[in-house]
């Protein structure tokens, strides 16, 4: 019944899934890793006009261990990349990552010696937001995309892999 090792999906799983996903998607706790301009636009989203609280994601946590959505807002230079990796690893599963803005997604205009050319080279990313910086509406759109991703999620997918690659 429910989650079992055979991989079958039972009626209980889907019902529980729906409940859990509903809860999860409406109470995302973002951890803003705001380094540059995008961090300021993220501040706008928090403030009164755009008000991210309408999407249940206003509980900003600066501790990776308390959050489930990592928003990488801004460029990531070589000195910061190990920090970002560590923060990602410290977040508990399930976790999602938004790469916000051109710099985080691809390096943007900074094709220089010290800027990482896209954080997805080193950590997994779920949603990319275009723009330099993305408008607050785009950030909300990215949040909705993450929510849609969560809707399709299932406890079944979080089966701990056996053997190789298990952590």
């Amino acid at each position: 019944m429910g989650v079992d090792r055979s991989g079958k999906v039972g009626w209980l799983t889907t019902t529980v899934d729906a409940l859990v996903n509903w809860g999860r998607k409406n109470s995302l706790w973002p951890m803003p890793f705001g380094t540059a301009c995008c961090g300021i636009e993220f501040m706008s989203v928090l403030a009164s006009r755009h008000d991210i609280a309408r999407f249940g994601a206003e509980a900003i946590r600066f501790s990776p261990r308390q959050s489930d959505l990592l928003i990488v807002a801004g460029r990531v230079p070589i000195k910061l990349m190990p920090v970002l990796t560590r923060i990602y690893e410290q977040m508990p599963e399930p976790k999602w990552v938004i790469s916000m803005g051109a710099c985080a997604s691809s390096g943007g205009v900074f094709d220089t010696y010290s800027v990482i050319q896209g954080i997805d080279n080193f950590i997994p990313v779920d949603v990319y937001l275009p723009g330099c910086p993305p408008r607050p509406e785009a950030i909300l759109d990215g949040l909705i995309l993450i929510q849609k991703l969560i809707e399709k999620d299932s406890l079944h997918h979080y089966k701990v892999p056996q053997g190789e690659g298990a952590t």
Binding site: T35, R75, P77, T112, Y113
Partner: peptide, 29 residues
């Protein structure tokens, strides 16, 4: 130095009007 992005090096490779766009990203407030 956690946000050292090589602005000054970039300035040597962009012409006068191109670099204006990069100056925005220096002080984003």
């Amino acid at each position: 130095g956690f946000l050292h992005c090589g602005f000054e090096k970039l300035g040597e490779h962009l012409d006068f009007n191109q670099f204006v766009t990069v100056t925005d990203r220096m002080n984003y407030i």
